[in-house]
């Protein structure tokens, strides 16, 4: 069930109210609506499907237990994404002391694409994006994710992260420059590899 804009914020507020009154069905509807937004954020932050699933579940559990502290004047999605973002950054902080991101295999992603060649291409692109995002410090990564995938404006991202609009904008610009730098390096090393491969060929 995709998010229905017409049902929009009024319906959403109703669901929150009903969930607060103990209606699990209403909360399930909230989960259904926001699962992709939360899961994608977790996936892009953490870089693998297993952690993303767990972090996304944890986000909703936390949201449920903190539902009372939700201020209906705010957008529900901003509130929820803030919980997800904090949780992911926490996880990354804990993870840094134990294992590096490179050691974790990329989870298999569910795909409906039947064309294997196109599938490989997509897989490569996915890997490239993951490597690029991984170069960014977590809070920069978060800004990029919220901007590109959750379609939030800089002001809304500021609300999620507790930052001013200007600070978000400058982070976004810097993050993009870092990504561009990374992309150039990726391309260079890729062309070097292919040059070497050609050189080795008889």
């Amino acid at each position: 069930m995709p998010f229905d804009e017409a049902h929009g914020r009024e319906g959403e507020r109703g669901w929150v109210r009903e969930a607060l009154a103990g209606d699990q069905e209403a909360f399930a509807r909230l989960v259904e609506n926001y699962q992709a937004a939360v899961y994608n954020l977790a996936y892009r932050m953490l870089g693998n499907a297993g952690d993303a699933e767990d972090a996304a579940q944890e986000t909703f559990l936390r949201a449920y237990s903190r539902l009372r502290s939700y201020d209906p004047a705010r957008k529900f999605s901003s509130w929820l994404l803030a919980i997800a973002a904090h949780h992911c950054i926490d996880r990354l902080r804990r993870r840094r002391s134990t294992i590096s991101l490179e050691d974790i295999p990329l989870g298999r992603q569910f795909s409906t694409d039947r064309d294997p060649e196109r599938e490989i291409e997509r897989q490569e692109e996915r890997e490239e994006i993951r490597r690029l995002l991984e170069r960014l410090p977590p809070d920069y990564r978060l800004v990029v994710i919220l901007y590109y995938w959750n379609d939030l404006s800089c002001r809304q991202i500021g609300e999620v992260m507790g930052l001013g609009e200007g600070a978000v904008k400058s982070r976004l610009h810097r993050a993009r420059r870092m990504l561009a730098q990374g992309l150039r390096e990726e391309r260079e090393s890729a062309s070097q590899r292919s040059n070497m491969a050609m050189g080795e060929a008889p």
């Binding site: 579940q57 569910f110 561009a180």
Partner: peptide, 23 residues
């Protein structure tokens, strides 16, 4: 190019049954 790459990247969805697992 980065802008293109990111804005064309799909939104990942969890495996089916996510809501049931959360509940």
């Amino acid at each position: 190019e980065v802008g293109l790459l990111l804005s064309e990247a799909p939104l990942f969805s969890p495996q089916p049954g996510f809501t049931a697992r959360v509940m």
